[in-house]
Design a protein around this nucleic acid. Sequence first.
DNA 1: TCCCATTCGGGTAATTGGGGTC
DNA 2: TATGTCCCAATTACCCGAATGG
Lengths: 75, 75
Amino acid sequence: MAITTPNRSESTSMPGALLTPGEVAAMFRVDPKTVTRWAQAGKLSAVRTLGGHRRFHENEVRQLLTGVPQQRSDV
Amino acid sequence: MAITTPNRSESTSMPGALLTPGEVAAMFRVDPKTVTRWAQAGKLSAVRTLGGHRRFHENEVRQLLTGVPQQRSDV
DNA sequence: TCCCATTCGGGTAATTGGGGTC
DNA sequence: TATGTCCCAATTACCCGAATGG
């Protein structure tokens, strides 16, 4: 069966597509460590692998990149 | 009785459905080899085919993906 | 039986996590 | 407060050839 993502950086527009910290960091032009801090600060939703590594939702990242009005619950 | 969905297809959402390493890898955005490693580490229950290939329980995978809140979500 | 993508194995680079500091 | 960089340990990704699945 040949379904879903091949491997590295190819998540087009699949529902539930995930990005690695390095990919998100490259998109924002920041250090992967910074992305990790965003996740720790709750600014980014993260899914953890069974080994503890983080995976981020592509839609969420793109939304933030595009400059879409972020929903701030506390201002 | 709870026949619910007589959809006798396959890769959808059937109780007790089995997933291939590639499918699980796509869901976690990791390499299929990593999924194999999880199975070897006992982090994932695996069923082996007669040829030695692994198959994983979809419900277990989904549970781990969501963060394992293991709760009857009836709220 | 053949075809071909996938999954075996192992082995070796690259990424990531976490703490701490500037 | 926010980001980048250092360290080390763990996890993950890519390499190969051979076997399995459908």
